[in-house]
């Protein structure tokens, strides 16, 4: 019996690597199957449906109908704008809360508060909507208190107005905002902030040159999750929005219910999908650009603000290392 040669040891390695390869395949396969069956194939079916008319002919007339109609383009614009506003407000409200949670709350309480934040996230969406409706309807608790304070009449309410829809969408977006931005807040090392302050950086400079560059990726994640979720909303505008609260989501829903032309409903959905992705892409690019600009990247030379009075170069260098 001869000792195994180096070549044979190398020759044995495929056996060792086939295991991990198969394991990797095995781990990936369920996800791939689910994605193919329930995301990719339905999307392909949707695209095909969008290009077929009610006489089963291949056509672009459904898309031509969308783009030639002021009504649907106006609804698309309104939906994108509203979703953008909801996302920005959710981030603006969620970020300070997440920061406070990560920095100023004891760990034991933090867990409890995070648990409370998650509750709306794991509650049925319809329950949330009808709970909110009960809260703000005429004669409801808020209306009662305001009436008792002689601030409004007993039948005054924001229910069945676009504001009710807007508030509901912000409310639904808050758990995502707090959870994602909490991760962002935790990722900013206290020592980096301390270093910036010690070196004389003012709070605004610390935010724009330290916190923002480190948090930007999570802000993009939050924007994507919230915007994409909001842009497809249809139950909220239908139940809470009233006659002026129409969004493209519930337009698509009524178009499908009418049975008039499913292909047109699909074309509306695909246009909404593509424009939403465009918005997400533009925002991602903008945030990345500001991150590079503020964290000392090549763009910084062109756009950097005046230096603070004291040695502020060190925080920038630290950020560059951290990121």
């Amino acid at each position: 019996m001869t000792a195994p040669s180096p070549l044979r040891r190398v020759g044995g390695s495929p056996r060792r690597s086939a295991g991990p390869a198969l394991a990797r395949t095995g781990l990936l396969a369920p996800g791939i199957v689910l994605l193919v069956l329930f995301a990719f194939l339905p999307l392909v079916a949707l695209v095909i449906t969008g290009f077929v008319n009610d006489r089963s002919q291949l056509t672009t007339e459904n898309f031509a109908h969308v783009f030639s109609s002021g009504t649907y383009l106006r609804l698309l614009g309104r939906t994108l704008l509203l979703s953008f506003a909801v996302t920005v407000v959710a981030i603006a409200l969620g970020w300070p809360a997440a920061w406070a949670l990560a920095r100023h709350v004891k760990p034991a309480r933090r867990t409890m508060i995070l648990g409370l934040v998650i509750i709306p996230y794991i509650t049925s969406q319809l329950l949330l909507i009808y709970g909110f409706l009960t809260l703000i309807q005429a004669g409801g608790p808020i209306s009662y208190v305001l009436t008792q304070l002689h601030l409004t009449g007993p039948q005054d309410s924001i229910l069945y107005t676009p504001w009710a829809n807007f508030l509901m969408l912000v409310y639904e977006s808050m758990p995502t905002a707090v959870l994602v931005l909490y991760s962002a807040a935790e990722s900013v090392s206290p020592s980096v902030l301390e270093a910036a302050r010690t070196l004389g950086a003012r709070p605004r400079y610390v935010f724009t040159h330290v916190i923002w560059p480190l948090s930007a990726p999570m802000v993009v994640v939050n924007f994507t999750l919230t915007f994409v979720q909001t842009v497809g909303a249809f139950a909220e505008p239908a139940v809470l929005g009233g006659p002026d609260g129409q969004m493209l989501g519930n337009t698509i829903s009524t178009q499908i219910s009418s049975g008039a032309n499913d292909g047109f409903a699909v074309a509306l959905s695909l246009v909404l999908l593509v424009t939403s992705l465009l918005v997400v892409g533009v925002v991602t690019a903008l945030v990345s650009w500001t991150k590079r600009a503020q964290s000392g990247g090549p763009t910084n030379r062109l756009t950097a603000p005046p230096r603070p009075r004291t040695r502020a170069r060190t925080p920038e260098l630290t950020v560059a290392r951290e990121s």
Binding site: S13, P14, S17, A18, L22, T25, A29, V33, V36
Partner: peptide, 20 residues
């Protein structure tokens, strides 16, 4: 080895999709 791995992955993926 690469071919074998690729084939194994392909077979596994196709089998999984077919099973699904």
């Amino acid at each position: 080895r690469r071919q074998r791995d690729r084939r194994a992955r392909s077979v596994a993926a196709v089998a999984a999709i077919a099973a699904g």
